[in-house]
């Protein structure tokens, strides 16, 4: 199988955040912040621009389940498609492999 290019950072964080299940935009943002230990804080434009590209690329999809907000607006929920989940798992494997190989070459550090 040909190796696909690794996802850009924002897309990578979002697909990893959605591995736990469907989330709305703000929850995705909070989950990304949590996953990155506070290092990545996306703005609204970055978040929805990336979600838009991921939907167009078939990695995530909107779910039909929409719960109303307090202000009457409807929240949009997103979940990984089958292809998106496979891609997220591939990315995790690639990252684990990167960490493993890097650790092997560090003096005095043994891979976990």
């Amino acid at each position: 199988m040909p190796k696909s290019k690794s996802l850009p950072a924002a897309s990578l964080y979002i697909v990893l955040a959605l591995l736990d299940g469907e989330l709305h935009g703000y929850a995705v943002m909070r989950r990304v912040e949590e996953l990155s230990d506070g290092a990545v804080r996306m703005g609204p434009g970055t978040l929805y621009g990336t979600l838009d590209r991921l939907v167009a690329g078939g990695l995530i999809q909107e779910t039909s389940d929409r719960s109303p907000r307090a202000d009457g607006e409807r929240r949009r929920y997103y979940e990984l498609t089958a292809g998106g989940r496979a891609r997220a798992v591939d990315e995790l494997t690639r990252l684990r492999s990167l960490v493993h190989r890097t650790a092997m070459h560090l003096p005095g550090a043994a891979p976990a």
């Binding site: 935009g25 703000y26 943002m29 609204p44 434009g45 929805y48 838009d52």
Partner: peptide
């Protein structure tokens, strides 16, 4: 300031997200 398609598709979500923040 965003392009028409983007703001029509995500405008309410962008504003909602800012309100949440």
């Amino acid at each position: 300031l965003y392009p028409k398609r983007f703001r029509e598709e995500y405008g309410p979500d962008l504003a909602g997200l800012l309100a949440d923040q």
